[in-house]
Amino acid sequence: MADQTQPWAERTVEVPPQPGVGVPQQRDAFRRGVASVGPSGAKRTEPFPVVQDPTGPGWPGAPAPRRPLSWHIAQLRRGGQWSAAGALFAFVCWGIWAISGGGNLAAPLLIFVLSLLVAAGLFALARLLGRVVLEQRLGRVRRSARGAHLVTAVFLAGLGVAWLQQTEWVVSVWNWITNN
């Protein structure tokens, strides 16, 4: 029995030999560090044959695996706050311009809707350009749509500034502030 004054991690317990359990017999060809294999020329039998398809995923030149629609939608949403901020700025500026013009709001509303459609087309063009340049030419993976959203936001902000420049009282206030 081990000395009880030693710490528990340093104690050793001797197990008496058990009948029927022993060290397995070693083969004559045993060499340490060398794996034992079957006799040479033995045919390998497997329950299911391994068939390798050279066109499957993982092979060079193989098509990339298709991703679900939810993955694509999540990718398009990343960076959407840029487009939303640009659209909000453009809407406020359009509202100031439309109300300052007086009269019927049908024509300014049509202009705003067409401007949003142009912004959506610009977004699609930026995504297409990113796909061609980044994915196909450079071989990179796009994980978001931040670049396309940023391009769209800059366009919408510029559109809002253009509407403010067409509003007479806003231009007068701006000139008054910059001259004083």
Rank of each mutant, 00 (worst) to 15 (best):
I99D: 15
S172K: 09
P54N: 10
T167P: 04
A62M: 07
E10N: 15
L105P: 00
G61T: 07
E168H: 13
V173H: 01
D53K: 04
V13R: 07
F123T: 09
L125W: 10
F30E: 11
A85F: 10
N179E: 15
R11P: 05
A87M: 15
G130W: 06
R142Q: 15
L109K: 03
T178H: 01
L138H: 05
A62L: 10
F30G: 05
A87T: 09
R131C: 01
P16D: 03
R137V: 08
I177C: 06
V133M: 08
Q18P: 00
V50E: 03
G79Y: 07
V173Q: 05
Q136F: 06
R140Q: 10
P65W: 07
Q26R: 15
L134Q: 05
P7Q: 08
N179Y: 08
G33C: 05
V15A: 06
G160I: 11
T55W: 00
T152C: 11
G139V: 00
V13D: 05
L76M: 13
G56E: 12
Q165R: 08
F91H: 13
R44F: 06
L109S: 14
I73D: 04
T178N: 01
V13T: 10
A35R: 05
D53I: 12
F91W: 15
Q165I: 05
A153T: 04
S36P: 03
G160V: 06
T167K: 07
A42Q: 06
L156K: 01
E14C: 03
Q26P: 13
S70R: 08
L110W: 13
P39D: 10
Q52H: 07
G86A: 03
F155E: 01
F48I: 13
L117V: 04
L159C: 03
R66W: 01
R44C: 04
F91D: 05
W71L: 14
G158I: 06
V21G: 01
V13F: 10
G103F: 06
T5E: 15
L114T: 13
M1C: 09
E14S: 10
G38Q: 12
V15P: 00
P57V: 07
Q25M: 08
L122C: 10
P16C: 00
G41Y: 00
L164P: 07
T152W: 05
L105F: 02
E135D: 09
G147D: 11
Q6A: 15
Q18I: 08
A84D: 00
R67Y: 03
F155V: 00
A106T: 11
F155D: 00
E46V: 08
S70P: 01
L164H: 09
R78P: 02
W174G: 02
T167S: 12
W163T: 06
V51F: 04
I111W: 14
P24A: 04
E168T: 07
W169S: 13
P49R: 14
L88I: 15
A162M: 14
